[in-house]
Design a protein around this nucleic acid. Structure first.
Length: 388
DNA sequence: TCAGATCACCGC
DNA sequence: AAACGCGGTGATCTGA
């Protein structure tokens, strides 16, 4: 992959330099900004700036400039190739332990404010999956001969936790019926039959984004407009309809903000606290206001993201014991926030899959019951569903 | 030469 | 007026 990607990268860089008219370092955001907005004169009206005052060359900015100049797509391609090459393809082989022949990550148990683990040296919680070319990297993560990798991930765990904590009857009902939750939401928000909306993938996609922002971020009309391309007023209208559809979600957000302000902290379902002293201050500057708004969003997020972290930790402890009790040779090798990856002898696949699914699903009793999808294969790329 | 800040971008 | 939650890594830039 290194040879192939390097060749593609060099070619893309040659084309960029050709258009610019001179050689420059494309990895330098300063030099790139000069080329795009100086030399080539791309429009800068309303464009985001960096802290240092230069016009930003971030991907979301460049996305907005596609079609304005042929160089934009080439820059985006260069960025993707460069990232994959430097962070993964060229870096990971150097981190193989010579004694074990494997890469070994370090997990930090106390690094994330919400109770999540983090992973370093190398970070194995951010291996590419989103793009076809990035996903190829997962072929490098292989099981021993005669063994398989088994991946088990919680299906929509944060949304299920939101349904449980908020008690929203419509969200709980949709999970109870086992519906495609995003299609179901789109049907309710747009007021059309579920059968019709499942064909309207754009509507489903918009609602899916909405749900994610609502659960993870604390949503604003501005942010929604930015991310979806909706106009500001359409975004506000959409938000109104969304909250009218799921009144329990709005209640959760308002109550969580009030709790954080009054107590100075919020908790996960299992009692993991996160403190927000800044929400008890009243400084009246724009900056102080922005900081408080950011803290409110983090407070809305903590009980959800933190509960998911608590739940998977319980599952990991129980699974480790359960494997030992059964004398299984399978072992846990990775945790990626809502996913556990194990290595299992091929002959034990069915038994391991059942044990993992049952242990993970029983880790916590939510009103929207936990659901786990299991897949297995010879490497982290070629995975096929197991049971379910 | 090196540490720290900045920018950008990978994952959930 | 300004702007989304939680992390880590690599390349570049800056300043000691």
């Amino acid at each position: 992959m290194s040879v192939e990607l390097t060749a593609r990268l060099r070619q893309t860089e040659r084309e960029i330099q050709e258009i610019a008219g001179y050689a420059f370092n494309i990895n330098s955001t300063q030099q790139l900004s000069d080329v795009l907005f100086g030399k080539l004169g791309l429009p800068t009206a309303g464009l985001k700036k960096t802290q240092a005052g230069a016009y930003s060359t971030a991907a979301d900015v460049l996305e907005g400039l596609r079609g304005k100049h042929e160089i934009v797509d080439l820059i985006l391609e260069q960025r993707q190739l460069s990232k994959l090459l430097s962070t993964y393809v060229d870096a990971l082989p150097n981190m193989i332990n010579s004694r074990t022949g494997r890469v070994h990550t370090s997990y930090n148990q106390t690094g994330a404010e919400t109770g999540r683990l983090s992973s370093t040296n190398p970070n194995l919680q951010n291996i590419p999956v989103r793009t076809d070319i990035g996903r190829e990297i997962r072929r490098a993560f292989v099981a021993e001969p005669g063994w398989l990798l088994l991946s088990a991930d919680y299906s929509q765990v944060e949304l299920r936790i939101l349904a449980h904590i908020s008690g929203d009857e419509y969200l709980l009902a949709a999970f109870g019926r086992g519906e495609d939750i995003h299609a179901s939401a789109a049907a309710k928000v747009y007021g059309v039959p579920l059968s019709q909306v499942t064909k309207e993938q754009r509507a489903v996609g918009a609602v899916a984004k909405m749900m994610n922002f609502a659960t993870s971020y604390g949503v604003t009309a501005y942010g929604l407009a930015q991310r979806t391309g909706l106009s500001r007023s359409d975004a506000e209208d959409f938000l109104q309809r969304y909250f009218a559809t799921y009144p329990g979600v709005r209640r959760y957000i308002e109550e969580t903000k009030a709790t954080a302000r009054e107590q100075g902290y919020v908790e996960t379902l299992l009692g993991r606290r996160r403190y927000f002293p800044v929400l008890r201050t009243t400084a009246n500057t724009q900056q102080a206001y922005n900081i408080r708004m950011a803290a409110e969003r983090a407070a809305i997020n903590h009980p959800i993201q933190g509960t998911a972290a608590d739940i998977i930790k319980i599952a990991m402890i129980r699974l480790h014991r359960a494997l030992a009790e059964r004398g299984s040779r399978a072992r846990m090798i990775l945790q990626v926030h809502d996913e556990l990856v194990l290595e299992t002898p091929e002959q034990e696949l069915a038994a391991t899959a059942s044990l993992v699914r049952e242990t993970m699903e029983a880790a916590y009793d939510l009103k929207a019951a936990l659901k786990v999808d299991v897949e297995a294969g010879p490497n982290w790329y070629e995975m096929e569903a197991v049971g379910g």
